[in-house]
Design a protein around this nucleic acid. Structure first.
Lengths: 162, 162
DNA sequence: GGGGGTGTTCAATTTTTTTTGAACATCATC
DNA sequence: GATGATGTTCAAAAAAAATTGAACACCCCC
């Protein structure tokens, strides 16, 4: 790790940048901090480096890294022809955000769409035509919306992928 | 409130739909439930209707309504030439999502951009040119990204606004 | 096959967020 | 200006989420 140069202040700011950033995505701050340390590091790091650097437990570090690897935002690398596994950040943030969209937003959207389908089936159980009309309109509205969201997500990912 | 017709099951599903939906935006489930009840109601409701319907406390209902009004997703209306205030959902979900973008995402983005500005200033304190180059590249990358995000948000809002 | 260094798992703990409830504010009506 | 029906506030309680730490698994190397 690089401790000679005066990069501590910068590292701190980068870490804080990502800590807040992942909060917006509803992830624990430790995950943001881990990503921040890796993003700010010229060399890959080992898990224990993160534990030291951030004063977090091995458990947190392990789980945070797992989450980040699932998103595709961090990967294992070989380094220094040493057999240990090191970790490095994928500098393309689209991995971070794209992974979030893939792992969090899409499943939610899908389950929402399933719920809407079920809703449509139940519509016929309403007798009063006026009331049925009312619910029909509201459910259709959600349908259109959810379709739109489905449409826009890939575009968004494309756009954000530099 | 409409209790005659067999809409309870549908209402339940709509409520659950929004409960999960707002969870994705990191809001308390009570907020989603409140919006759900209003969205599923042909008539405006009073706060105490929500308290009854959802078996939540007045405090929750009041705070949830406040949040939804801040987002612009719910508004007060007059009804039944009665002086009480009633609440109804804005059926355009863009209000809900747009409000979220305005109240949550934008401020975060702005504070992130401020952080980046500060980071750029600190770059000059690094002596080693190679290391400075490294940080410079990473920070610029964040800059580009944050600019992109700023660009895409209004487009997103426009697109989602039917 | 034992030891050192690394990462994982998960029950217990801590921290954070949400919800509650009781005291208070508002205001139309009698 | 008392009453009743509504909404608000906020400290305390409950619930949910994140973090810890200790036991365990893995794996290279001697």
């Amino acid at each position: 790790m690089n401790t000679k140069e005066g990069t501590a202040a910068i590292d701190e700011r980068l870490i804080s940048f990502f800590r807040d950033g992942v909060r917006l995505l509803g992830m624990p701050k430790s995950v943001g901090e881990i990503f921040g340390v890796l993003y700010a590091s010229p060399e890959p790091l080992m898990m224990l480096d993160l534990v030291d650097r951030l004063s977090i437990s091995k458990g947190s570090a392990s789980q945070g890294l797992k989450m980040l690897r699932t998103l595709g935002a961090v990967r294992e690398v070989n380094y220094d022809n040493d057999r240990k596994t090191y970790f490095e950040a994928d500098v393309e943030l689209k991995k971070l955000v794209g992974g979030f969209i893939r792992e969090e937003i899409r499943p939610h959207l899908q389950s929402g769409q399933k719920k809407l389908k079920e809703l449509e089936c139940e519509l016929s159980t309403i007798n009063d035509p006026e009331l049925r009309e009312f619910y029909d309109e509201r459910i259709q509205r959600l349908d259109r919306w959810s379709g739109k969201a489905n449409l826009v997500l890939p575009l968004l990912q494309k756009f954000l992928g530099e």
